[in-house]
């Protein structure tokens, strides 16, 4: 399995993702430059967090037009894996690879802190080996993370099992009337209906090493790798 981490101008979690995939998960990783179109034979593309193109205009709105995204969209259409974290998730919704949109947080402020999420089911690459009853402590860091989609779309996503993660409290309780950033139905992560494109606002790469005092995000990378190993 070869991972490719895309670097847009303004990406700033690219090195963190490369570090976790390469040094912690021991995978082959290459960096992909936004002006290129060659995915270098990567099987799994990651769009990292950051402020691509300064997040000017609207988060992810400019990045979707970069040359590399043309190739990423083709890759996804052929069933290739794509994961977007934070700004990467925003780029995926702007590109139409994932349904919905990410709006300004309900209190209008950037927020960086540990929060808890819970996997909705085990029927995806990211959540296959996760415990759906157990909250995971993972950091968020965003100003535009309020997930939104039309009711009809949400119902269909729900039926297809496209909702991957819910925000919850430290005991794993999902509060219908209280959401962290205003996300509709407490959605923290989703996938497309072909089940090969994934997006999430929390940063599992910031919670994957003993050194940082939190390894709960590592389980997501382990899930991805275990499923891919099974398929291989």
């Amino acid at each position: 399995m070869k991972f490719g981490v895309v670097i847009f101008p303004g990406s700033n979690c690219d090195e963190d993702m490369v570090h976790v995939l390469q040094d912690v998960m021991k995978q082959q990783v290459v960096k992909l430059w936004h002006k290129d179109t060659n995915l270098q034979g990567c099987d799994f593309i990651v769009l990292p967090g950051g402020f691509s193109y300064g997040d000017y205009l609207r988060s992810g709105a400019i990045a979707r037009f970069s040359p590399i995204m043309k190739s990423v969209i083709e890759h996804a259409a052929l069933g290739g894996y794509v994961l977007g974290i934070c700004n990467g998730f925003q780029i995926l919704t702007e590109s139409g690879l994932l349904p919905g949109a990410l709006l300004r947080n309900k209190d209008q402020k950037f927020v960086c802190k540990n929060i808890h999420i819970k996997a909705v089911h085990n029927n995806s690459l990211l959540t296959a080996t996760l415990d759906t009853t157990k909250p995971m402590k993972i950091p968020i860091a965003h100003a535009e993370g309020r997930y939104f989609a039309a009711e009809k779309v949400l119902n269909e996503m729900d039926r297809n099992g496209q909702i991957l993660f819910h925000y919850c409290d430290e005991n794993g309780v999902v509060h219908e009337d209280h959401t962290l950033n205003g996300s509709i139905r407490n959605i923290a992560g989703v996938m497309n209906d072909q089940r090969n494109v994934f997006g999430m606002m929390p940063h599992p790469e910031r919670a994957a090493e003993e050194a940082l005092g939190n390894v709960e995000g590592k389980a997501i990378f382990e899930s991805i790798l275990s499923m891919i190993a099974t398929k291989d």
Binding site: H19, E205, L212, G213
Partner: peptide, 27 residues
């Protein structure tokens, strides 16, 4: 503090266990 990204770079080893000074590892 929560309006600042305190974790990007994955070197802040004080996030989950604070000290009197911020401890930042050198990768």
């Amino acid at each position: 503090a929560e309006q600042y990204d305190s974790m990007v770079g994955t070197n802040n080893v004080s996030t989950n266990q604070p000290s009197d000074a911020a401890v930042v590892r050198v990768k």
